[in-house]
Amino acid sequence: MPMNDYLVLSRGQWDATTSPQDVQAAIDAFYVWYEQGLAQGRLKPGSRLEQGARIVAQGLVTDGPFAETKEWVGGYWFIVAETLEQAAAIAAENPCLRFGLTLEIRPLDATRAHVTVPTNETPANWR
């Protein structure tokens, strides 16, 4: 079965009832897990995101992001797996999940967009 790339978005904030020392231990364990995954070819590099952002829409540029705290994206990377289920199982090994963060795993679609092919951007009444 061919291998596919899956985008992983790290969302949320640390559990405020957890000690900073426990969270730091999870962060340190994450980097060990991450580096091993890169070396094994199970992960591809990503990055933490800085706090500043701009929202760009038709005729508008403004400060952001404006998502709720639980929806904030703190970083991203990629998982290499055969299926979405396998990618989710790899993501579930992330030590930071114990302390309030959640991970969103999304398959990447390498095909060129076309208005007749439904996507996340397609209005419901067009489908």
Rank of each mutant, 00 (worst) to 15 (best):
E104W: 03
K70V: 13
V73W: 00
D5H: 12
M3Y: 09
R106K: 15
A124W: 05
S19F: 04
E121F: 13
A113S: 15
V61D: 07
R11N: 12
V80H: 02
R127T: 07
D15C: 06
H114E: 05
P107L: 12
D5M: 08
T62K: 11
I105K: 10
P45S: 05
P118I: 01
V73M: 12
P118F: 02
Y34T: 07
T69N: 09
I27D: 12
P123M: 03
Q36P: 00
E121M: 11
A91L: 05
W14G: 12
L60P: 02
V56D: 05
A16P: 12
L7G: 00
I90E: 05
F30H: 15
E71P: 02
R98E: 15
Q58I: 04
A87L: 02
L43H: 06
A87W: 00
D63Q: 08
Q58S: 06
F30T: 01
I90G: 02
R106A: 15
Y31E: 13
D109L: 09
P2W: 10
A88M: 14
V56R: 05
A25I: 09
L43Q: 00
T119H: 06
N120Q: 11
E68A: 15
L103M: 13
H114F: 08
Y76W: 14
I55C: 01
M1P: 07
L9Q: 13
E93K: 00
L103C: 08
A89I: 10
W126K: 06
A92E: 15
A57F: 01
E71K: 02
V23R: 10
A113V: 14
R42K: 09
E104F: 01
P118A: 05
G12M: 03
L7M: 12
G100Y: 02
W72E: 15
N125W: 06
G46T: 04
Q51Y: 02
Q13E: 15
A16G: 03
A124D: 04
L84P: 00
L43P: 00
R48K: 07
Q13M: 15
V61Q: 10
G74R: 08
A81M: 01
E35I: 00
S10C: 14
I55S: 07
